[in-house]
Structure formats: C-alpha cells, structure tokens
Amino acid sequence: MRVVDLTHVIKEDMPVYPGTETPKFLPGSTYDADGFKETCLQMFTHTGTHMDPPAHLFANGMTLDEFPASQFIGKAVVVDCRGLGEGEFITMEHVRACGDAAEEADFLLFNTGWDQYWGSLEYFGEYPCIDDEVLDFILAGDYKGIGFDVIGLDPIADENLTRHKRLFAHRAIVNIENLTNLDACGRGLFDFSCFPLPLKDGDGSPVRAVAWFC
C-alpha cells in the first residue's frame, strides 16, 4: 500500500493567515525535571492544513463535533488546475477533465500547484479560486468535502468570505485548506481521509490529510 501525506507540518515559524498568531510550543514537563516530556500547544483552530465546517461562518452552523466520523473519509479525486496564473479562476473545464470521477468522488481536491510557495510571501498572493459555476456544481452534488492547496476558498482580498458563505449556507459540508503533495495522487479516484480533532463546538481544526493506494 502506498500512502501520501497531504499535510503541512505544524511548527512555530509556519505560515498562518495574515493577522493570526503562529503556534507556540511551551514546555510543560521535561525529561530532566519530570522523567518525561509534555508540551503545551497554543494555536488557532484554522492553522496549517485544516478544516472549516459551517460553524466557521454561521453561529447556528454545524460544528465539527456534530459530524459523524464517516464525514472525514471516502473517495477523492484531484482536479488538476496547475496551468492557472495569478488571480485566474478554476472552471468546470478543469472539473470535467476528471470524467465520471468528479461526480463519483466524496471529496473534490483542487490542485493549483500553489503549495510550492508555502513559506514565502507569494503564498498569500492572488492564488486561483473556483468560479461561481464550479461552486454551483459542488452545491448541487452530494460531496462530503472539498479541499485546496491554497490558504482559502475565497480570494485573499475577499474579507466578506463570499464563497465560504455560499457553501456553508446551503450544505453540511467541510472545506479543507492548505493541502500539499496533491501532485502525488495521480488521476482517478483514491482513498482519502482528513480527520479533525473532536473539539467541542469546533469551528475548525487542523487535520492529518492522507491519500492511500492499495
């Protein structure tokens, strides 16, 4: 079995959404003083490779702990959007190139190639985003989730989070951001999981996103 990790490592100097504090790893117990090591981790729920539920945008929206565990595992397909430039849109032409897998998948994962900029200022630039027709297609489907190798579903300049609101206003679905290594997943359907922490009233959580191939 081949396993591909689609997750960025969480560390103190990692990229975070502009205005958000970076994670802090604070010593709790040490080998010398206590005979074991334990660390106090402080970070925001939307750090690194993470998941948004409807409660991220809506006070009465579904929280992560309200989803069954089955929401976070299924079949996925990568939508190849790597030919797009800054500020260009992901269209149904990219989705249709996946063939029947686009409708058979539980998760649509959009590969813009933007993860190559992880750790640089370019990562927070004008990354490609889905257009309205693609969002309509997602809303009309029966997907468990969608995912991206960029920092947001909306353009970095859209402080209103228009696409997030449209997505979560109509569907009990999850949105995964800051994926990586989607190039390694090839074409067609594959097994995928993206389990979040079961945080009470969770508005988001880092995930360990993984693809595997038997």
Score class of each variant (00 low, 15 high):
159 E>V: 11
174 V>G: 04
174 V>T: 11
135 L>Q: 10
171 R>C: 09
139 L>R: 05
148 F>W: 06
154 D>L: 13
143 Y>E: 03
157 A>F: 13
165 K>I: 01
135 L>T: 07
144 K>W: 05
157 A>P: 01
161 L>C: 14
160 N>G: 12
151 I>H: 05
153 L>A: 07
143 Y>H: 07
143 Y>P: 02
158 D>Q: 10
152 G>T: 13
146 I>D: 01
148 F>K: 02
136 D>F: 07
147 G>H: 01
150 V>G: 06
148 F>Q: 01
155 P>Y: 13
139 L>S: 03
164 H>C: 15
165 K>W: 00
149 D>L: 03
157 A>G: 04
139 L>Y: 05
141 G>V: 06
146 I>A: 03
133 E>I: 04
136 D>T: 08
139 L>M: 10
145 G>Q: 05
174 V>Y: 03
142 D>C: 02
149 D>T: 00
153 L>R: 05
166 R>Y: 10
146 I>F: 01
146 I>H: 02
168 F>M: 00
134 V>Q: 06
138 I>P: 04
163 R>T: 13
149 D>H: 02
165 K>G: 04
174 V>R: 02
167 L>M: 14
156 I>A: 13
157 A>H: 13
174 V>M: 03
147 G>D: 02
157 A>Y: 12
168 F>K: 03
166 R>C: 06
141 G>C: 07
161 L>E: 13
174 V>W: 00
168 F>A: 02
168 F>W: 06
165 K>P: 02
172 A>H: 10
170 H>L: 12
170 H>Q: 15
162 T>Q: 09
153 L>E: 05
152 G>I: 07
144 K>M: 05
143 Y>R: 08
169 A>W: 08
166 R>E: 12
149 D>W: 00
166 R>S: 09
171 R>V: 03
145 G>K: 00
152 G>F: 08
159 E>F: 14
164 H>M: 09
155 P>T: 08
159 E>H: 14
160 N>L: 13
154 D>F: 11
163 R>W: 12
151 I>G: 10
133 E>L: 05
142 D>N: 10
145 G>D: 04
164 H>A: 12
140 A>G: 11
151 I>N: 06
161 L>N: 09
168 F>I: 01
163 R>N: 10
